[in-house]
Lab assay of single mutants.
Amino acid sequence: EKIKSDFFELLSNHHLDSQSRWSKVKDKVESDPRYKAVDSSSMREDLFKQYIEKIAKNLDSE
Results as ranks from 00 to 15, higher is better:
residue 2 K to C: 03
residue 2 K to S: 09
residue 16 L to F: 08
residue 51 Y to W: 07
residue 50 Q to D: 12
residue 55 I to G: 10
residue 38 V to D: 04
residue 50 Q to A: 12
residue 57 K to C: 12
residue 37 A to Q: 07
residue 52 I to P: 02
residue 58 N to K: 13
residue 34 R to M: 01
residue 54 K to E: 14
residue 59 L to G: 14
residue 35 Y to D: 01
residue 30 E to M: 12
residue 59 L to I: 11
residue 37 A to I: 06
residue 59 L to N: 15
residue 31 S to I: 04
residue 61 S to T: 09
residue 3 I to G: 04
residue 17 D to A: 03
residue 34 R to H: 00
residue 49 K to G: 08
residue 18 S to L: 09
residue 1 E to L: 08
residue 62 E to L: 06
residue 43 M to T: 14
residue 40 S to V: 04
residue 35 Y to E: 01
residue 26 K to V: 08
residue 2 K to W: 02
residue 45 E to D: 04
residue 6 D to I: 01
residue 37 A to P: 00
residue 2 K to P: 03
residue 56 A to P: 11
residue 59 L to K: 13
residue 28 K to L: 15
residue 12 S to F: 04
residue 30 E to L: 07
residue 37 A to S: 05
residue 61 S to P: 14
residue 31 S to T: 14
residue 1 E to P: 02
residue 56 A to V: 09
residue 36 K to A: 11
residue 10 L to M: 15
residue 5 S to K: 15
residue 2 K to R: 09
residue 33 P to K: 12
residue 3 I to N: 06
residue 53 E to M: 09
residue 55 I to K: 13
residue 40 S to K: 08
residue 46 D to I: 13
residue 21 R to A: 11
residue 35 Y to M: 03
residue 35 Y to C: 09
residue 23 S to C: 13
residue 40 S to C: 13
residue 27 D to Y: 15
residue 20 S to F: 03
residue 3 I to E: 08
residue 18 S to M: 13
residue 62 E to V: 13
residue 43 M to N: 09
residue 1 E to Q: 05
residue 7 F to Y: 05
residue 5 S to C: 04
residue 18 S to C: 07
residue 61 S to W: 06
residue 48 F to S: 03
residue 38 V to F: 01
residue 60 D to Q: 10
residue 34 R to V: 02
residue 51 Y to D: 04
residue 42 S to D: 12
residue 28 K to D: 10
residue 49 K to H: 15
residue 1 E to H: 05
residue 8 F to M: 06
residue 45 E to P: 00
residue 14 H to N: 07
residue 30 E to K: 15
residue 6 D to F: 00
residue 2 K to H: 07
residue 1 E to W: 05
residue 52 I to T: 08
residue 21 R to N: 13
residue 58 N to L: 06
residue 54 K to P: 03
residue 20 S to P: 04
residue 44 R to P: 05
residue 48 F to V: 09
residue 14 H to C: 07
residue 33 P to L: 05
residue 13 N to P: 04
residue 46 D to P: 01
residue 26 K to C: 05
residue 10 L to R: 00
residue 22 W to D: 02
residue 43 M to Y: 07
residue 27 D to M: 13
residue 22 W to I: 01
residue 10 L to Q: 00
residue 24 K to M: 12
residue 24 K to N: 14
residue 15 H to G: 15
residue 40 S to Q: 07
residue 50 Q to W: 04
residue 55 I to C: 12
residue 14 H to Q: 12
residue 56 A to D: 15
residue 23 S to N: 08
